[in-house]
């Protein structure tokens, strides 16, 4: 029992690495928040663009979504971080990670929003348009509130799954939480930092999961 405590819950090690873990936590939290915002709004914008049913636009969006859903996010990060500079476009590891994961989340969430839009009866569009609501007003006041109810569970799953990919960003030199924890674990030959990282992930993602459950309840109108 003492050995388990010493190996996993070592107060001395925890105190020693608390500063680097804390800064890793801040990096992961900040990056995750940014990715959720840009990824989900990107996905929503693409799904709305797709409702115009212009052949070329639809083709481009479908191609984008299919390709980005297949590529491992890490390859995108590498491409942005290592290959783009060769073409004269340099970016920090932070930007590369943010861009890669946002693009992937946008691809997945576009598909989720789109399916949710499709599930809304055509009569809802017609009723709204026949009272003079514009296309945009119909989307935001009639279609989206109903689509959200359908979309929220899968949207939460995807958001959590992809945002946890921030852990990959240490490969492009971002000092995020899990990377810091692994480094600290090998320096100290002690697993406490890993458990600290696990706690950090719970602090970031558990509220997200709970928030989405509350949203689900709010959108349950009958």
């Amino acid at each position: 029992m003492d050995r388990i405590l010493a190996q996993f819950f070592n107060a001395e090690v925890a105190a020693q690495y608390l500063p680097s873990m804390a800064s890793g936590f801040a990096v992961t939290l900040g990056l995750a928040a940014l990715i959720v915002v840009t990824g989900l709004s990107g996905g929503l914008a693409l799904a709305v663009a797709r409702t115009f049913q212009l052949r070329a636009v639809t083709f481009a969006i479908v191609a984008y979504a299919d390709i980005l859903r297949c590529l491992p996010p890490l390859t995108l990060m590498f491409m942005f971080y290592f290959a783009f500079p060769l073409a004269g476009i340099s970016m920090s590891g932070m930007t590369a990670a943010w861009l890669a994961l946002s693009l992937v989340l946008a691809a997945f969430s576009e598909e989720i929003f789109w399916t949710a839009f499709l599930s809304i009866n055509k009569g809802q569009w017609e009723a709204a348009r026949s009272t003079g609501l514009s296309f945009g007003q119909t989307i935001s006041h009639v279609i989206l509130p109903q689509a959200m109810r359908v979309a929220i569970p899968s949207l939460t799953n995807r958001t959590i799954a992809i945002t946890k990919g921030v852990a990959l960003a240490s490969a492009v030199a971002v000092p995020e939480m899990l990377g810091e924890a692994i480094a600290a674990t090998s320096y100290s030959s002690n697993s406490t930092p890993l458990l600290m990282a696990a706690a950090g992930y719970m602090i970031i993602f558990l509220p997200l999961a709970i928030f989405s459950r509350r949203l689900e309840t709010r959108f349950r109108w009958n």
């Binding site: 009866n121 009569g123 809802q124 017609e126 009723a127 709204a128 348009r129 026949s130 009272t131 003079g132 609501l133 514009s134 006041h141 009639v142 509130p145 109903q146 109810r149 959108f219 109108w221 009958n222």
Partner: peptide
Amino acid sequence: NGLRQQLGMVFQSFNLYPHLNALGNVTLA
């Protein structure tokens, strides 16, 4: 949109907005 405000339409399948109460359905437009 201007034209459609002047021509009220009632559908076979009602098409009420399920997420709004009766008052909300009427007040939206």
